[in-house]
Amino acid sequence: MTPTRTAWFGIGISSAVAEGPRTLRLASQADRDELDLFSVSDHPYVSDRLDAYSLVGMALGRTQSIAGLVNVTNLPVRPAPMLSRTVTSLAALSGGRIVLGMGAGGLLAESAKLGVPLLDPAAAVRALEEGITLIRALSGGGAPVTFDGEFFQVTRLEPAATPAPPVWTGSNGPRSLAVTGRSADGWIPGHAADWLSHRYRTSRPVIDEAAVAAGRDPRDVATIYNLPGRITATPLAVTRDDDNRWVGGSVGQWVEELTGAVLEHGASGFTYFPTGDTEPEVALAHWAQEIVPAVRAAVAADAA
């Protein structure tokens, strides 16, 4: 699936076992409200969490247009050859409604509880880049693939006919940011950092420099933000906290902030994570039915 939209708008939904039925209903609600994607986390070492790809598959089977994103896939516990089979299978079954979020593994010691090798951070980043390369090689048809890498090996394995989905990375350190610039289609800044954050200002240049060094246009690497916050009935006097982190506001304040993020800061998308006491169904309705259409309209008007 190739992104053709001006910006992606998504919703973060729970992977908690106890919330399973509600989570599936929220994915269907987001689909009816014409959001672009739903997002779930990947923590297979936690017993009260659903397997992320099982949840994505179930949700895609109940929806028509929305894409699924694991935000982000824990590569150490999902070897690249099998991950490639997983995402190309979901793409084939859903008509391409999948985005591949990938990370080197932020909790490597927790991942090792599942019996996978405990990699040091530098090795984990090398495995991430190798994994992206192999996943793409094992998709889109073509001749059998033999790959003898440091972390992954396959021998004369036929690629899936389905093309690989877009790859978005959750990169934080300079080595993984450089991988994003060389190899990825999108970047999800860590720790819910936004376009005004120190993390964005210091990290995005690393991505851009690596993209140029690899002969790529930095604009080909989208920035999609995980964006928590409250949607309030009336405007807030202050919409950012003491650390300049967005905390939310009224529908109008959200629309103004996100329109500026796209038009002035080049934001490529937002995955909204409701905070506060508002029921998820209500927060999703405000997001999908009021804020997102208004931002889309404002961006389209600017481009006209």
Rank of each mutant, 00 (worst) to 15 (best):
G61N: 03
R245A: 11
A123N: 14
G96S: 03
A52N: 05
D277K: 08
V125W: 02
E281T: 10
I98Q: 00
D208E: 14
T73N: 04
M1I: 15
D277E: 13
H43W: 10
P293N: 02
V40R: 06
V77N: 00
P121Q: 08
A112W: 02
G57M: 04
G260L: 06
R230Y: 11
V292H: 02
T180Y: 01
L50G: 12
L55F: 12
F270S: 02
A67L: 10
T278C: 10
L138H: 01
W246A: 07
R216F: 03
L108F: 05
F9P: 07
A184K: 03
S139W: 04
G12W: 14
T155V: 15
L75K: 01
L75V: 13
V255R: 03
F273P: 05
L177C: 08
S65H: 12
T271I: 15
P44G: 09
I11T: 14
G215K: 12
T271G: 12
P293A: 01
A192I: 13
N244F: 09
V212D: 01
M102Q: 11
D220G: 15
V206R: 03
R32F: 13
P121V: 04
S268V: 02
V238L: 11
P293V: 01
F152I: 10
E281Q: 09
T223D: 04
T133W: 09
D242K: 14
R199I: 11
D31S: 09
P144E: 10
L236P: 07
P3D: 14
F38I: 15
T223A: 15
A193Q: 08
S28Q: 15
H43Q: 13
D31Q: 11
S111D: 14
G103T: 00
E150Y: 09
G181E: 00
R32G: 13
V251S: 02
A304F: 10
S171L: 05
E290L: 10
F151P: 03
V72T: 06
V145Q: 04
I11R: 09
D185Q: 06
E257Q: 14
V40F: 11
P165N: 03
S41D: 10
T162C: 07
P121R: 03
Q64V: 10
R136P: 08
W254N: 00
A124V: 05
S176Y: 03
R204P: 01
W195R: 07
T2Y: 08
L196P: 05
D208L: 08
A294I: 07
L24K: 09
P189E: 06
R97K: 11
E129W: 04
I188Q: 08
R62V: 05
D243N: 13
A109T: 11
E290W: 10
P174D: 08
A283M: 12
G149K: 00
